[in-house]
Nucleic acid binder design. Structure first.
Length: 376
DNA sequence: AATACGGGGAA
DNA sequence: TTCCCAGTATT
């Protein structure tokens, strides 16, 4: 990348220029107003705010990436009781680390904490790294988390840009475009740096996160209580709901599957338990085949002769990442010997009285349809 | 049911 | 570099 002549005229979305709009005057009142508000209304009693050393802040930030404050609190306390510092974490087995994490999900993050603890301990000096680049070099820590750790625990001047801050800044400056886009994210980073004060960085960092978490919320922001309301461009235009722009919904790839509804003579339906990971992990579902031909082949292989099959209209099911077209196919098994025995992973259930088991959503729908069809 | 979340790894 | 994904909570 040699030619970087295009400075920064990339302004996705519309709205006034952020840098000379209101709220970006020569003296920036943004941090002062925020700090004054924080002194009165901010949270000052969170567990990780007591002796906020880099280790404690680090652990709290990773936990808070995925879980809200009240849920994190007990996890954090248990963690600190068992792993009060980097050495105790590095000295533990990964299984115990995962055990203390269990319930929080995203286990890769716990593994990264463990790996990073080893790296820090084995560093010459064995101290927590003190520069942004060195902190970012640790697994599981990116720019925002690194900035938060150094700002909150050492009052170093670094900007942060977590989800709360993105929301506050994109509203305040009416920055359009989805923050997941690199150009938009860069714009927000430069605004975050512009507002970050040279004094009280730790308080400021907590303040802007608190504002996003308590007032400048995704839905129904409480603008009337916001210390920044006078200069907030979104507030002035009444367009708070438009920021930050949502991820553009991309055309999701279409996948197709055949779900077999095996019906025995008693009107019971065959379900099987899905593997613990992947789509519908651990839930009960109908047997799936990629095509109707596959289903027929499977039946032949199983020695089921001349099965009575009935294809239902395609049912669409939307996932975050793709669209699934389900072709339900009823297969009536004719003889008792066709019936597959119950098993830990296979069960015959009465569709009109499904037992308390985790069912994939479209499976519940299909079972309902079964009942409707048999009544009609 | 759709979406947000920060970072890692794939493309 | 950019895109896509994970696993849960929230709306």
């Amino acid at each position: 990348m040699s030619g970087r002549k295009q400075k920064r005229q990339i302004r996705p979305g519309k709205g006034p220029e952020p840098h000379n709009g209101r709220g970006m005057s020569k003296t920036d009142h943004f941090p002062d107003k925020l700090l004054a508000w924080f002194a009165v209304h901010g949270r000052h009693d969170l567990p990780w705010q007591r002796s906020p050393n880099p280790y404690r802040v680090w652990i709290s930030e990773i936990m808070l990436q995925q879980t809200q404050v009240e849920t994190v609190r007990p996890y954090f306390e248990r963690w600190m009781a068992r792993f009060p510092d980097v050495d105790s974490l590095a000295g533990a087995g990964v299984d115990e680390v995962l055990h203390l994490w269990s319930g929080l999900g995203y286990y890769a993050r716990a593994r990264n904490l463990h790996r990073a603890a080893h790296i820090i301990r084995d560093e010459p000096g064995g101290r927590f790294p003190q520069t942004l680049d060195a902190v970012m070099a640790l697994p599981g820590i990116g720019r925002s988390t690194a900035g938060a750790i150094l700002a909150l625990s050492m009052n170093q001047r670094h900007a942060i840009l977590d989800g709360n801050v993105k929301r506050v800044l994109s509203r305040f400056h009416a920055v359009g475009g989805w923050p997941g886009k690199k150009t938009v994210e860069n714009e927000l980073w430069s605004l975050a740096e512009l507002h970050t004060p040279t004094h009280d960085v730790a308080a400021y960092t907590q303040a802007i996160m608190d504002l996003g978490a308590t007032l400048c919320t995704r839905t129904r922001p409480r603008c009337e209580a916001c210390p920044l309301r006078a200069d907030c461009l979104a507030r002035q235009a009444g367009t708070q709901a438009a920021f930050p722009a949502r991820r553009p919904k991309k055309a999701r790839p279409l996948k197709a599957t055949v779900m077999a509804i095996f019906l025995d003579g008693d009107g019971k339906v065959l379900l099987h338990k899905r593997p613990p990971s992947g789509i519908w992990g651990g839930l009960w579902s109908l047997p799936e085949f990629s095509t109707a031909a596959d289903l027929r082949e499977h039946l032949e292989t199983s020695g089921i002769v001349d099965p009575q099959m009935e294809t239902w209209p395609v049912m669409a099911h939307g996932f975050t990442h793709y669209q699934l077209a389900i072709t339900p196919t009823v297969v009536r098994l004719q003889t008792l010997s066709d019936k597959i025995a119950d098993d830990r992973a296979v069960r015959w259930i009465d569709p009109s009285a499904p037992p308390a088991m985790g069912l994939a959503a479209p499976v519940s729908k299909l079972l309902d349809q079964m009942v409707q069809a048999s009544v009609a």
